[in-house]
Design a protein around this nucleic acid. Sequence first.
DNA 1: TTATATTATGAACACCATGTTCGTAATTGT
DNA 2: ACAATTACGAACATGGTGTTCATAATATAA
Lengths: 198, 198
Amino acid sequence: MSRRKTDRRVLRTRRQLQESLMSLVLEKGYDAVTVEDITERADLGRTTFYLHYKDKDDLLLQSLETVYDDLVEQIQQRTVDEWVADGQGPWTLAFRHAADNARFYQIILSGQGGSVIKNRVQNYIAATAQRTISQLTQELGVTPSVPLEVLSHYIASSLLGLIAWWLQHDQPYTVAEMDAYFRQLAMQGTTQVIGIGL
Amino acid sequence: MSRRKTDRRVLRTRRQLQESLMSLVLEKGYDAVTVEDITERADLGRTTFYLHYKDKDDLLLQSLETVYDDLVEQIQQRTVDEWVADGQGPWTLAFRHAADNARFYQIILSGQGGSVIKNRVQNYIAATAQRTISQLTQELGVTPSVPLEVLSHYIASSLLGLIAWWLQHDQPYTVAEMDAYFRQLAMQGTTQVIGIGL
DNA sequence: TTATATTATGAACACCATGTTCGTAATTGT
DNA sequence: ACAATTACGAACATGGTGTTCATAATATAA
């Protein structure tokens, strides 16, 4: 007993299902993919799918969590001081990651993709942002004039919104440009960006 | 001949379908509503639905357009000077409109609601913002340091994102507070909001 | 290696929503 | 009143979902 998740079959099955979904999304879009499509490509019985996941959304969300583990590590490895020193922010990595998996996010973020997905990703970003900002303000001993939650969700939605727009228009600007634009908008505000004095 | 859309039956049918959808969404959510639900409540044959709309999304989108006509008029009736003079922006109306139809947008914007809906609304806001900003910069004779499209989509996504968060958390702040927060964030930027000098 | 528990299988099933067809009835504008 | 349009409803084909169950395959622990 107490043989938790060591069973090779389980790991193998889940990995195949995740890979199958990813590749199918790139070919047919998200909505068009059926559970049977997935299991067929994975060389598994359709019944097996429901042995591991509740539905298609469930599979995608768990897959994304796996994917994000890399990103989270990258972000958390750098200290706040380093971000400030670089004059960059965690969003640089976000733009890069999005560009690397452009076709995938183009579909997922289009809204065509699963219904709840985009919101989940946004909440994830917001939570990360909140942690970072909270840490930053404590180190500097300052107090934001806007509730932390409002602040973090503002950043998360604008960042994800820009990324979605950027990808859907086939990246009309480089990663560096988008990073610069976002930095100006988020940090200095639209007033200065537009060119109005104060 | 040339009796375009004057037929009472057509107008009556479409109005009933729209009203039925709206009320059903408030009761069951968006996904849970079926075409039969709609036609049943509207006292119409299911076949009739397909005589007017392609599917559920089609009906919702056309309904929203109707709803937005009011909002657009309100916004366009005020000149840029008036907005600047007030120290407000069109977003004030957006927060108010959202609050007035809170339960509806709570569902629609949750992502649970139709897949493409949220994106459409966002694009609509972005387009409106772009028109407004374009007009503003021409009057003032300034040139933004960020492409207009980037700017407008930044504003649109952050505004809609904040509204969505605000509604999903049952409006933890007043309209006035949210308006003030958004104004600070959008215009002055996060740097000043957080409390970092420059 | 053997025993036992776990997992994969595939056929079958019930279910439900979708979108279309077609002949008929009702209503409308002229 | 007449011709055109629209609403009707029953029927049908389609297709995906999620579940059940008996059976086979496979992994783990002893």
